[in-house]
Write a protein that binds this DNA or RNA. Structure first.
Lengths: 342, 342
DNA sequence: TTTCGTTATGTAAAGCTTTAAATATAAGAC
DNA sequence: GTCTTATATTTAAAGCTTTACATAACGAAA
């Protein structure tokens, strides 16, 4: 009933050939006649033989698998990333196994340190915590690594190909909000150092940051957006725009504002980042910055697969994509006549 | 700079001991003095030795990893499942690698057939397509398997532990809709056989199915909901309630209805299934059935880990949880005074 | 000092495959 | 029928670890 552990030797004996011949049959190698191959495949079928992968990759160093380590699978942009990587890998005959680091420093280190245990030929990692020791571990990981960089200025010496999920999204948002005449612009995000660049762009765009207009929540979730809305609503002098660290937070904000009777975009404009599918479902629809998740992920995968194929090291690529702002209902200009007036 | 492939033998030579001793040091085995262990660990550090997992698991059959195969990672319930499995696994010192089958029959077969290549001790699979050959492959997979069953009546003879993502959710929805006085109840889903049970419950609850009130889309996405809303809106005689195969579709429906000027729940009640996080964000908030994804996933993981630990086969568990209907704004009774009247 | 019982360490086999090198077989030329 | 050459097949080594078994070291008891 079960594969009781039938080895290549059993197959060879049964089929009356040598083990090398069986191996050739398995691997579609040449130097074997069509009819013996047939016979062997038949025997394999009968005996229910399945080659032991551990033994195989003990000799052949490749596994035809790559790993993808993502921060928090509950963040709505991850699916796009993972999907794109999967497609690219499949096109090269590769399988993808996904690991969840939960944006946790320890987990990020662990996946790189233990990458060999995963039985993969390479790793695409999208770090969030960026623990100090990461570059060093990447350096001695032993397999090629691609980094999908999410809002952090990285040291150029990193021994990995790096593709950035756009580095300029913050500037785009701030420029836009100022252009449509908003002057009290708030920021809603997680701790300032988690997606550092997005917050730094906020600081840079302003002469002086009003600390009361900055809200740091615990994560990237709807909840954070909801709490931020409560917080801003409680202020003596409300902001007239909010730059949200991502769409999840933006959606939480907008929905809570609605409940509180704050009109979006008339009273407050809201802009998110990531341009996930929910931005168009929310009402009002939410302006956002497309960070080209799919393209970035695909490129990261291609670069990795290329390194695996060519077994090269050094001379690492550092790529970044041009982000695109997509203006929707949640951030209309103040000068236009508002559509949603009561 | 790189791990050039330093083996246990190099370490042994360098430390002036036998390879068995090094092995003992690595695995915290007993029968080694504290000081030699220290010395060896030091040498390992110096040389940057990392044990070859292929060679290891060629001897020891276990890898301390399990695989989780999920249908479409873009479906909003998957994250909960995956999260719960991860937690359970971690508690037992196991790592989880996730595979995306995209609900594709071929991929579902492949992951079971090739499970050995994944270098894992067991598999949790959540099939959608349920291809015919699946039970047979599960039977001879060679590692224990847990099935998370999503809306399909399964053959009891399946050689795997099965935990059902509630089997009665459809009945709950239909009972509820009829109870609040809806008589023209529509169904919006994917093809009837994909999440078979949910549709069958619809049929069972009605004397006669009006074919014009059934909409089958392509997937479980928002898009399907949007198209369904367009379809129903175009009917000469609109339904007064829609039972959506899941929350994604329900949310798509509600939002499109709003755009079309159809009032929810006054004109049409909408109920989804899965109870994902977006149901409470949508406005109106959406009634849904909690299918206990986390609990189900955790149990599936526990059962799998138990089998791995005890190396048992046969006598498989078939468990199902009690679903819970959660009534929100989208399906208020017709008799109550509507809150949202214009 | 000898002997015994423990504990620490080393040796060698086993685990299963791939592959280089050696050998056998078949086909073709003369 | 013999020789050459190309093709098919087999043998044996290598890949790296764990572990059963054998051996060595050590301290304690006699």
């Amino acid at each position: 009933m079960t594969a009781k552990k039938v080895t290549i030797e059993d197959v060879a004996r049964q089929a009356g050939v040598g083990i090398a011949t069986v191996s050739r049959a398995i691997n579609n190698a040449e130097g074997i006649s069509a009819k013996t191959r047939m016979r062997i495949l038949q025997t394999i079928e009968e005996l229910g033989f399945v080659p032991n992968t551990s033994a195989q990759s003990l000799k052949v160093r490749l596994t035809n698998q790559i790993a993808l380590a993502v921060p928090d699978i509950r963040n709505a942009i991850i699916p796009d990333i993972s999907w794109a990587v999967e497609q690219a890998a499949k096109a090269h005959g590769y399988r993808v196994v996904q690991i969840n680091t939960a944006g946790n420093a320890r987990a990020e280190l662990e996946v790189v340190r233990d990458i060999k245990k995963l039985h993969v030929d390479g790793l695409i990692i999208m770090p969030l915590a960026y623990p100090k020791a990461l570059p060093e571990l990447i350096d001695k990981a032993g397999v090629p690594i691609s980094v999908i960089n999410y809002g952090k200025q990285l040291d150029d010496s990193l021994q990995a190909d790096v593709v950035c999920l756009s580095i300029l999204e913050g500037k785009l948002v701030m420029d836009h909000l100022q252009q449509i005449g908003r002057s009290r612009i708030a920021y809603a995000g997680t701790q300032k150092d988690v997606i550092e660049d997005r917050y730094l762009a906020y600081e840079r765009a302003l002469n002086r940051v009003d600390a009361s207009l900055v809200y740091f929540g615990e994560d990237f979730s709807l909840q954070t957006g909801i709490r931020a809305a409560d917080y801003f609503h409680g202020l003596a002098h409300m902001p007239d725009a909010v730059y949200a660290v991502n769409d999840m937070v933006a959606i939480g904000l907008v929905n809570r504002f609605k409940e509180l009777g704050v009109r979006v975009p008339e009273d407050v404009a809201v802009v998110g980042v990531d341009n996930n599918q929910w931005t168009t479902i929310s009402s009002p629809q939410i302006s956002s910055v497309s960070i080209m998740g799919s393209e970035v992920a695909r490129l990261a995968a291609e670069l990795l697969l290329k390194r695996i194929r060519e077994q090269t090291r050094g001379d690492y690529e550092k790529v970044q994509f041009e982000p695109r702002l997509i203006v929707r209902e949640s951030s209309v200009s103040l000068k236009r006549s508002p559509m949603h007036g009561s």
